[in-house]
Amino acid sequence: MSYQERRTLANLVGTILVNVLYTAYMMQRYPTAGDYSPEIFHYWATFFLILIPISILAYIIIYIVFSILNAITTREVEPDITDERDRLIELKGNQIAAYVFGIGFILAMIALVASLPPAAMFAILLCAGLASEMLSSLLQFYFYRRGV
């Protein structure tokens, strides 16, 4: 397995871990107010605003830990350049991720049109974000493995 393949798998595991742990932690603080209470909107806005810096910090930590573990276990030197194939694979992964998140956004709007509570819309957006990130990592792994 190449360095890039291991890195995309580390990203995938990191994405799942961060999102699942953070969601599990925040769900314990879910307000008991009514479906359309301002508290609910405040909660979800806080949820997403805190998730962004936590994700960035987690990715930095995951990257450092991965680099150290990779160097220890494989003794392989990390490629010091990102070449055209890396960029193409990243672009393809991000393109599919954007489509998936777009579909999630439309589903979230449909949930509102169908008079579901706002929490459903936010939950769909959260799931779409997670699904798009996971799919992006999985596709990048596939392209590195099978060719692009």
């Binding site: 190449s2 890039q4 490629p79 055209e84 194939r85 890396d86 060719g147 692009v148």
Partner: peptide, 22 residues
């Protein structure tokens, strides 16, 4: 050539068609 070893390997195996510049 200014690329990674993995890219050369992929080109050799026919898994990747390089750009004209590369």
């Amino acid at each position: 050539a200014g690329v990674t070893r993995q890219t050369i390997g992929a080109i050799e195996k026919g898994d990747y068609s390089p750009s004209l510049e590369l």
